[in-house]
């Protein structure tokens, strides 16, 4: 069975946020509430400052704590390893947001993260929390998988562009924008990445590019201590931690 996963090469990533923008366009995201984001960190003080960044999609964990804590089973994991939210079952308790170690979930009824609140200019109708000008076609929406414009009162998250990858040819090892057969099935963040820092494929297939990169370049996962086992791996070159701890920025 396919187990979709992603590899992000931090030595190639330029922090350009094209992935963030592509995700927002593809998945109707409110500015600032990005399913895919690039986080910036700075360590030290001038003139000895180090700036680093980390692209952060949902980790689609093997043992997702968000699935375990959801009291209504609204958050679930597909057979091909993708964690989704059923908006028809979500009660908006936000326990998944509490339990996710990676901060990748969003409850959009709250105050906008970035002002001005774009929702005011594009108010929603019915259950939709807003009507983005760059919305996906209605036919693509699937609330049972958390795909579409986020309704009121529910939590949302990155779907690995499930509306695209779920229609990929069976048995394919990699979803790569360079391959015409898989281009349309490649997640938006992967497809748009200019320095080609992202790879997407089947983690259970030893022939896939993602499996080979993880093996050859020592792919690491975030917060291994939680036991969530992310299906997103980072290639950091091995010389530094992927993410600096907040306390590492403080003087002892």
């Amino acid at each position: 069975m396919t187990k979709w996963g992603m590899v992000i090469d931090l030595e190639k990533c330029t922090g350009c946020q094209a992935c963030t923008t592509a995700c927002a366009m593809e998945n109707n995201r409110l500015p600032g509430e990005n399913w895919q984001d690039v986080l910036f960190y700075h360590e030290g003080t001038y003139p000895n400052v180090n700036l680093s960044w980390l692209p952060r999609p949902c980790m689609h964990c093997e043992n997702p704590s968000c699935v375990a804590v959801c009291p209504t089973k609204a958050t679930w994991k597909t057979e091909d390893g993708v964690v989704l939210v059923d908006w028809n079952k979500c009660i908006g308790c936000k326990y998944c947001m509490i339990a996710c170690p990676y901060g990748v979930r969003f409850y959009m009824d709250e105050k906008a993260t970035i002002e001005p609140d774009t929702r005011a200019a594009f108010p929603g109708d019915g259950t939709r929390s807003w009507n983005p000008p760059y919305r996906m076609p209605d036919a693509m929406e699937d609330p049972s998988k958390g795909i579409g414009i986020q309704p009121h009162g529910v939590v949302s998250k990155c779907t690995f562009c499930y509306h695209k990858i779920s229609k990929a040819p069976k048995g394919v090892a990699d979803l790569d924008e360079a391959n015409p057969a898989t281009r349309e099935h490649t997640p938006a963040c992967v497809r748009t990445c200019a320095p080609k820092a992202r790879y997407f494929g089947d983690l259970d297939n030893p022939e896939s590019r993602v499996s080979q990169l993880i093996a050859d370049k020592g792919g690491v996962r975030l917060k291994e201590e939680t036991g969530n086992k992310p299906q997103v791996y980072y290639l950091s070159g091995g010389g530094a931690p992927v993410v600096p701890g907040q306390r590492s920025n403080k003087k002892a």
């Binding site: 009291p71 209504t72 079952k89 009660i91 908006g92 308790c93 409850y107 009824d109 009162g153």
Partner: peptide
């Protein structure tokens, strides 16, 4: 809650 009555039912 986002959907309190749905919570009661589900």
């Amino acid at each position: 809650l986002g959907h309190p009555f749905r919570a009661l039912l589900t």
